[in-house]
Structures are given as structure tokens and as C-alpha cells.
Design a binder for these strands. Sequence first.
DNA 1: CACCGGATTGGCT
DNA 2: GCCAATCCGGTGT
Length: 208
Amino acid sequence: MANILSKEFYESKDVVQIAKDLLGKKLVSHVNGKRTSGTITETEAYRAPEDLASHARGNKRTLRNEAMFSAAGHAYVYICYGIHNLFNVVTGPQNTPHAVLIRAIEPLEGLDTMMYRRKMSWPKHEMMNGPGKFTVAMGITIKFDRTLLYDKKSPVQIWDNEVEVKEIISGPRVGLSHHTKESGHWPWRFRIKGNKWTSKPDVVKYEW
DNA sequence: CACCGGATTGGCT
DNA sequence: GCCAATCCGGTGT
């Protein structure tokens, strides 16, 4: 019998460890009467204030990133490039802006709904392999910014999942090429080794 | 109030 | 590989 991840899951460890622990967990959404779910296959940790790649670098606090300063177990959803809704899990104590970006999932339930939302006729890799793609498939938008993830009444939840994660690959986070500072190269992107449902294939140069 | 730019994607060369 | 799409918060005048 699977359980919803508890408040303690999100607040009891460091964000980098939680980014690894989230691999293999089940992300569930209930949107417009449709249930969809998938196994989390790829994450990235963002650890402000010292992490210059985070929106909350230097503890910069704005309307957009307010959720990151809220208590652990909330969602931080923001719009990237005006088009894409990117979904994060807030961790750490209140006012400590740590978050995990979910970058990809492997579909489990609601395949028809996810294919419809992604305008696809059959399930394929491209349906889910990116942070702005699986959010479309699961109906996750900025509307769900600041929602609680460990409440069974929430539209977005994360659950235990009978998936054994054997090996994790880490590497540099994606899309931070403009960051020349050290934090831009921290190996805080994590993937389930061998899983095809990730945003990029396993490439040697990404090995840490 | 104008301008800038991004934790991306998909279509076209 | 290149690059436009498309929005809105952040910043400075």
C-alpha cells in the first residue's frame, strides 16, 4: 500500500539529497477531472542563497519566487520563456529557499489524457522528456504555484512508488551555460541510470 | 512605463 | 545546429 510523501520527507534532509530521493517517486495530478501520474526520472537541486543559478540567489525574494521561501512540501511553479510551466518541489525550513526542479517523468496512469494534452497519437519518449513537457501532459500550470504536495486533497501530490532505483547518475544542471561561476557547474542534476524517460540521453561528458 | 531576458521547446536549415 | 515563439516579473527611468 503506497503512501503519500509526508511533510517530514520534504523538510528532514538537504535539498541535494531530496533531489536524489525523489527519483522513483510517483507524481500524481488531478486536473479537470482527469488523473495522471508518472515516475520521477530526472531532477535538479537548487540551493539558494549561495547557488547563483537559483531564482532566490542571495536570498533575493520576489513575487515570482515567493513559494521557495514557504514551508517544505509546497510547489513552486513558474513560467519560463513566457511559454513553459516549470514545476519545483520546495524543501528545507521556512525562509530557506531550497527547491528541486522536476525535469522528466515516466508515464504511469492517464496515458490517453497525457497524449491528448501533448497532441500525440501514441505514447513516445518526446511526450515527457523535458521540464516544460511533462507539465503539459499532467496539466500542471502556474495555477498550482504554492500548492501543498502532501495533502491528499491537493491537485498535485507525490507518493511512494514500488520502483527500486538501482543507480543514479549526476551531472551539471541544464540550461545554465551563461553561468561561469562555480555554482553553474555543480553536479546537481540527477537521473535514474538507464531510464529512457529523461530529458537527455546518458552522455559520457555529463558523468561526474 | 519601457525594456530586458529567461532552470525551454519545436520547427526549419 | 540555429533561432523564433511568447509572457510577465524585475528593474530602472
